[in-house]
Design a protein around this nucleic acid. Structure first.
Length: 320
RNA sequence: GGGUCGGUAGCUCAGUCGGUAGAGCACUGGACUGAAAAUCCAGGUGUCGGCAGUUCGAUUCUGCCCUGACCCA
């Protein structure tokens, strides 16, 4: 009985996800307007302050009308990771749950959602010193040397990770070299199997053609709204283009443009291409998630009915 | 009107000393546990401008035509 009660006490989340530019923001504004509640953003870029236009953050007026969490929480030169996201979102969700609010988790960063809902393996965290050393070793001796080292200490990882995937090779070595245990062993103990929440996952899907047209429109709008000036402003603030959040699909092309490589239409083309590729990567990721119930973004009514059923079922359950 | 250099994948171009072609990007599919808007993998794609000629065989050589850029009139 005690276990059952604890079951029912788990926070309930309405997750809204899907590729970039499908209309998640517009939809959740309408839903939250109707059902109430607050929004927890699951977007790895909107966490950064000052990156507004290029990350398509919800407008100030929207954020004043409906409380948004995990937007503008770190500076562009601060580290932030899926683990940070999970920890912070966990606290926010607990507190919203205690006050009985409807919790909307909205975003397209697949790893963040998976980590939030399933938990993250309790691995060694990122260690900037180890990372710096590994990067230097790679520059000096080449990636293949690092890969060979990984193959010796953790053959299973080496079998799973491609020999060109520098990020994952270095991460696996980082875990091994700072903890003495392989990443494989630690991940096996875990495997995203925690179930901290009761979840309704709603995915927004659009036809490729439609989605790509929306992406192009959004890119034009970003440029019109001053994406280039925003980027120059970041530089004036002292943020270098090598920073992680600036080496991304919108800002990276802007820096190229600022160096005189290409004109404005060329910039729009580049961002559009990158964004389309990103949207496809997101589709690939979400396709695997069998929990997601897919809807057309135009089917606001159907989605609202589904959300209503989910919330009703939950509130009628046993209360703590 | 004459000359020069071009016309090869959706785009930019490479190439074939004659045996029907290839890179990058685009496009499509996939992977993903503290960098995830990151990182990585795989896959095609073609009347080689047109018509003739030479040749066993022409995208490659020759002629003519069409077409683009530039130069000279």
């Amino acid at each position: 009985m005690k276990a059952r009660a604890a079951e029912e006490e788990r926070p309930r989340l309405v997750v809204l996800t899907g590729p970039t530019a499908t209309g998640k923001t517009d939809l959740v504004i309408r839903l939250a307007g109707f059902f109430g509640g607050e929004i927890v953003s699951a977007d790895s870029m909107q966490v950064y302050r000052y990156l507004d236009i290029g990350t398509a953050k919800p407008s100030r007026s929207v954020r004043e009308a409906i409380p948004h969490h995990l937007i503008d929480v770190v500076d562009p030169d601060e580290p932030f990771s899926a683990a940070d996201f999970t920890a912070r979102a966990g606290e926010i969700i607990e507190s919203l749950h205690r006050s009985g609010k409807v919790i909307w988790v909205v975003g397209g960063t697949g790893l963040y959602l998976r980590a939030l809902l399933g938990g993250l393996a309790s691995l060694t965290g990122a260690d900037p010193r180890v990372r710096k050393r590994l990067r230097e070793e790679m520059a000096r001796h080449g990636l293949s040397l690092l890969f060979e080292r990984l193959a010796r200490v953790d053959p299973e990882s080496a079998g799973r990770i491609h020999k060109n995937d520098a990020v994952r090779i270095m991460r696996a070595l980082e875990v091994y070299e700072s903890s003495g245990r392989t990443i494989t062993a630690q991940q096996k103990e875990h495997g995203f199997r925690q179930r901290r929440y009761r979840v309704l996952s709603i995915g927004l899907a659009r036809e490729r053609k439609d989605l790509f047209a929306r992406i192009d429109r959004r890119v034009e709008e970003m440029i019109r709204e001053g994406l280039v000036a925003e980027t120059e402003g970041l530089v004036e603030r002292g943020y270098d283009e090598s920073l992680k959040p600036l080496q991304t699909l919108t800002y990276r092309p802007v820096f190229r443009y600022l160096r005189g490589e290409g004109d404005l239409p060329g910039l729009a083309g580049a961002i559009g291409r990158e964004t389309r590729l990103y949207a496809k990567r997101q589709e690939t990721w979400f396709k695997k998630d069998r929990q997601i119930e897919w809807y057309s973004p135009d089917d606001g009514e159907g989605i609202a009915r589904r959300v209503d059923a989910f919330l009703r079922r939950e509130t009628n359950g046993v209360r703590g």
